[in-house]
């Protein structure tokens, strides 16, 4: 089996939904993201990418949040059954 790179929030297409699996990267960044609601098992939705390709707009806990690509890469997604 070839180890595959896990899908992160940065790979999510606009309007797609996904579930957070876990966080990675700098602990301080992980902590901030978790506090904003990006905890494991959370449903999130990619709303759009800014016109210049970065940052991203996501929906979590019924509110909208903008994160840069760097931070989105810290959010690992659960492999969707669908």
């Amino acid at each position: 089996m070839i180890a595959q790179n896990p899908r992160t929030l940065a790979d999510l297409k606009a309007s797609a939904k996904a579930t957070v699996a876990s966080l990675q990267g700098e602990p301080a960044v992980q902590q901030r993201l978790a506090e904003m609601g990006l905890t494991s098992g959370r449903q999130i939705r990619m709303v759009r990418v800014a016109p210049l390709g970065d940052p991203y707009q996501i929906e979590v806990l019924n509110y909208h949040l903008s994160l840069r690509r760097r931070e989105c890469e810290c959010v690992l997604l659960a492999t969707d059954p669908a």
Binding site: E26, A28, Q57, Y63, H64, L65, S66, L67, E71
Partner: peptide, 12 residues
């Protein structure tokens, strides 16, 4: 001292 992540709430 630490990278502050860019976190911007987009309020309604």
């Amino acid at each position: 001292r630490t990278p502050t992540p860019f976190i911007l709430e987009l309020p309604s």
